[in-house]
Computed example of a mutant assay.
Amino acid sequence: MRINSTVALTFILLTLMFGAGIVTGAWGFAIGREALKGITQPDARPTNKVGKKNGSTRTSDALVVLQEDDIIKKVKTRLNGNAKSATASIAPPKPEPEKQVTNSAKFPIVSQDKGVTVEVSGVRRRGDSVVFDVSMKNEGSQSVKFLYSFLNITDEQGRVLSADTDGLPTELPPNNQKFTGTVSLSTALLDKAQKISIQLTDYPDQKLQLRMADIPVK
């Protein structure tokens, strides 16, 4: 019986392919086994046997299942702790308390000229500043303008002191309305001063002469 050459060739090719597959599979298995050598499956059984060794009791580590309620409690506790820390970090600093300066002067100290009245009603300490409470009103018939860069403050030694004003009007209307504000001086400037004098005039006419002397600072 004559064998067809095509059938024989096909059979040989199939045999070679089958043999190559077996060799490749065996080789891959060997490489994988070598790579996983020394790696063991962790003991995750819910219950482990308790044994004794050298007279002592030894318990193997067991898989611990956390309860949902415990997890929720821990999360809430951590969130509350973080919220308190954040609130403490952003909380604004407490303002320094103001202290009234104790002295024997009789307040208010008043100056009046051409219907305009300026009054210092008290003095107090606020942080690193000495603050004078000032009020102004105009009983005249015309508005009066002020430029507080012309505010002249001197101590009993004749030294000129720089000050900051807050709330005092730049224009005082003739309606007898009382306006209040403050004049603040740094305590560093008042280190050797016991009393100050304040002079103020209108701008630009400079017709008013408002002066308050012997205002205590300590």
Rank of each mutant, 00 (worst) to 15 (best):
T6M: 06
T6L: 08
A8S: 12
L9M: 12
L13C: 08
L13N: 08
L13M: 08
T15A: 08
L16I: 14
M17E: 06
G21Q: 12
G21M: 10
V23C: 00
A30G: 10
G32M: 09
A35F: 09
G38P: 03
I39D: 10
T40E: 15
D43H: 11
D43M: 07
R45I: 06
K49Q: 15
V50Q: 15
G51K: 08
G51L: 11
K52E: 09
K53R: 04
K53I: 00
N54V: 04
N54D: 14
T57I: 11
T57W: 07
T57Q: 08
R58E: 09
R58N: 06
S60M: 15
D61S: 15
D61C: 12
V64P: 01
L66V: 05
L66P: 10
E68M: 00
E68S: 06
D70E: 13
D70W: 08
I71P: 05
K73N: 13
R78D: 11
R78F: 04
L79G: 09
G81W: 00
N82I: 08
N82V: 04
N82Y: 10
A83E: 12
K84T: 13
A86C: 07
T87R: 13
A88Y: 04
A88E: 11
I90C: 05
I90K: 12
P93C: 07
K94S: 11
E98N: 07
E98G: 05
V101M: 04
T102C: 02
N103D: 15
S104Y: 06
F107A: 01
S111E: 05
D113Q: 05
K114V: 00
V116C: 04
T117S: 04
T117W: 02
R124N: 04
R126L: 02
G127E: 06
S129F: 06
F132S: 03
F132W: 06
D133M: 04
V134L: 07
K137G: 03
K137F: 03
N138H: 05
N138T: 03
E139G: 13
E139D: 15
S141D: 13
Q142S: 14
K145V: 03
L147W: 05
F150I: 00
I153Y: 05
I153G: 03
T154A: 07
E156T: 07
Q157A: 14
R159M: 08
S162H: 07
T165A: 00
L168M: 07
P169S: 14
T170G: 11
T170S: 12
T170H: 11
E171W: 06
P173A: 10
P174V: 10
Q177N: 12
K178T: 14
F179H: 13
F179A: 05
F179K: 03
V183E: 01
S184K: 09
L185A: 09
S186P: 07
T187Q: 15
A188E: 14
A188R: 11
L190I: 07
Q194R: 08
I198T: 00
Y203F: 15
Y203R: 05
P204D: 12
P204S: 10
D205R: 12
Q206I: 07
Q206V: 08
K207F: 06
L208V: 05
Q209M: 01
L210E: 02
D214P: 00
P216F: 02
P216H: 07
